[in-house]
C-alpha cells in the first residue's frame, strides 16, 4: 500500500499560540483513521492543514507529492471535506448544492454536463438524499443537511475523504447511519477516510486505527485497544473511566465513573 498522506514534523501556530507542535503521521491509501483528542488539541487544525485551507511549517505530501505543488482545482479532485456545519447565505436547492461539487470537473464558464449530473445523482442515491433534491438546504433538519454534505463530498469522487466531527450535532440514529455509510464506502470504493471525532465509543467501534492528539502532538497512535485505555482517558480528559470490551465485537467501550 502506498501512503495517501505523509506528514513530517508539522508545526502550526495561530499568531503566538502553537496549535500543531511537531506531528509526523502517515496514512495509507484505503485506511480509515479516527482522530481523537480533547477540545483545542489540534484535530480541526490538522484537518485544515491536510485539506490546504491552512498552511503549516513542515512537510505534507499527498500521493507522494508536496501539497503546495497542487492547485486548488487539483486538490478538490483528490480531496473532499465534510464540514461540521453547513451554512448558506442564499437559498440553494439540495441538487444545486450537490452539483457544486463538480465545479472543478467542468469549465468554470459552463453548466454541468451529463457526467456531472450522473455522478451527483449517484452520490444522492447513496446518501438517500435524492428525494430532497428540490428542497432548500436551509429548510432541512440537521441529519438531512449532514447527509447532503456527504453527498456533495461523494460527488467530488474523492480519493481522500476528510470529516470534521461529522456527527457532532446529530442524534444517535443519524450518527450511526453516517458512520455505517462511511465504513461501507471505505470497503466498497476504498477512499481513504480521516475523521475527527469526539465520541470515544463510536470511534472504537468503527475505526481500526485511532490517532490521539494532545496539545498539538500525537499522544497515541494504533488500534482502539491500545489507544482507548483507562490510563490514556484519565490522562487526556481528566475523567476517571472503566474500559470494558463490547461482548460481541470485542472493541473497547468507555464507562464513566462518576464522583458524586
Amino acid at each position: 500500500m502506498s501512503a495517501a498522506i505523509e506528514i513530517q514534523d508539522l508545526l502550526f501556530a495561530y499568531d503566538e499560540r502553537t496549535v500543531i507542535d511537531g506531528i509526523s503521521l502517515s496514512v495509507d491509501a484505503g485506511e480509515m483513521v479516527g482522530i481523537l483528542g480533547p477540545n483545542g488539541s489540534g484535530k480541526t487544525t490538522l484537518l485544515k492543514i491536510v485539506s490546504a485551507v491552512l498552511r503549516g511549517r513542515g512537510e505534507v505530501k499527498l500521493a507522494g507529492k508536496d501539497i503546495r505543488s497542487y492547485s486548488r482545482r487539483e486538490l478538490s479532485r483528490l480531496f473532499a471535506v465534510v464540514p461540521q456545519e453547513s451554512a448558506v447565505a442564499f437559498p440553494y436547492t439540495v441538487a444545486e448544492i450537490v452539483l457544486m461539487a463538480r465545479a472543478s470537473f467542468h469549465s468554470p464558464l459552463a453548466f454541468e454536463g451529463e457526467k456531472d449530473l450522473a455522478v451527483a445523482r449517484q452520490a444522492m442515491e447513496r446518501t438517500d438524499t435524492l428525494a430532497l433534491s428540490n428542497r432548500y438546504l436551509h429548510e432541512l433538519s440537521g441529519g438531512e443537511k449532514q447527509r447532503v454534505m456527504i453527498a456533495r463530498a461523494l460527488a467530488q469522487e474523492p480519493q481522500i475523504l476528510l470529516l470534521d466531527e461529522p456527527s457532532a450535532f446529530l442524534d444517535l440514529q443519524h450518527q450511526v447511519q453516517i458512520l455505517d455509510l462511511m465504513r461501507q464506502l471505505n470497503r466498497e470504493q476504498g477512499p481513504t477516510i480521516i475523521a475527527a471525532l469526539h465520541d470515544l465509543n463510536l470511534a472504537a467501534l468503527y475505526f481500526d486505527r485511532l490517532v490521539m492528539l494532545r496539545d498539538g502532538k500525537i499522544y497515541r497512535d494504533g488500534s482502539p485497544e491500545n489507544v482507548i485505555t483507562e490510563e490514556t482517558i484519565r490522562e487526556l480528559y481528566g475523567v476517571p473511566v472503566r474500559i470494558q470490551r463490547d461482548p460481541s465485537v470485542r472493541r473497547p467501550q468507555v464507562f464513566i465513573c462518576t464522583t458524586g
Binding site: 485544515k48 482545482r73 471535506v81 464540514p83 453547513s86 448558506v88 457544486m100
Partner: peptide
C-alpha cells in the same frame, strides 16, 4: 459573469469554496 460559478461557491463560505477548488 465569468466568475458566476465561483460566486456560487463563495456564498457557501470561504473554506468550503476553497475545498471545492476555488482560488
Amino acid at each position: 459573469w465569468s466568475k458566476g460559478l465561483a460566486l456560487n461557491l463563495i456564498t457557501l463560505g470561504e473554506e468550503t469554496a476553497m475545498q471545492l477548488g476555488i482560488e
